[in-house]
Amino acid sequence: MGSVTNTLTWYWPTRSGLPPLVPMLWLTAVVLLLAVTAPLVEIDFIHVVASLPKLGSFLSHFLVVPDWNYLPELGLRMLETIEMAVLGTAMAIVFSVPLALLAARNTSPHVVIGWLTTYVLTAIRALPELTWAVAFVAAVGLGPLAGIMALAFVTIGFMAKFFAEAIEVVDCGAVEGIRAQGAGRVQTIAFAMLPQAMPDFISALLYILDHNLRAASILGLVGAGGIGYDLVMNLRLYQYDRLMMIALAIYVVVTALDRLSTRFRHGVI
């Protein structure tokens, strides 16, 4: 029996049987960092435990009968949100393709231009849509236009980057082949590079559309159109019956687009 207990001794699955050093050091560092920063984020045991009943009572407000009279307006607002996401994405495509051609290493007219474009795109990506939406609302006034412009602006930063990455990985064979036929620069890009990058383009496009729909649903917080405005208003007025419907509607629409884009992506690629 002694040998059985011996074989049941626990070892780490490493050569020495001891915990692996480097991951353990990382883990300790992360835990220490979290412990040090906890007071800044007001995470202490008492605070967290005290907030749980509040959270519970807040969630219990949602157990109400939905306000069905609100349904048509909700539908209209959701439609507006979807339209904002689509128009913002469409506007971004127009600007992203030329910018991607400037940024991609194999199509950029000059190395310096490539770098500059990449840096500009990084700067655009740095701040989220909502910050730009605040600026655009102040500039062009309340309404969906500000939201669409904010979405399009940030989307250019992401889309041009994704497009440039897709162009950079195209197969050289087709490019050389079409060049050997005497094709010029524009013809090479149009007939050898873009068609090869198309599946990646579409994949990036779907991802961005998905992201933009989520973003569009909260842009209304700063008055840039869409469902977010209703969300804030109803939260301030404690109309939980409508609030629940809004949250559900956002969930349903985002999930539907997610499923749809997954199916479409499998069809294309």
Binding site: K54, L55, S217
Partner: peptide
């Protein structure tokens, strides 16, 4: 599917202001 802004908005009204 729940945007984090929306969650933050709801959590702020549930457990109060702060990080």
């Amino acid at each position: 599917a729940m945007p984090d802004m929306l969650l933050a908005l709801m959590l702020v009204s549930a457990i109060g202001l702060g990080p």
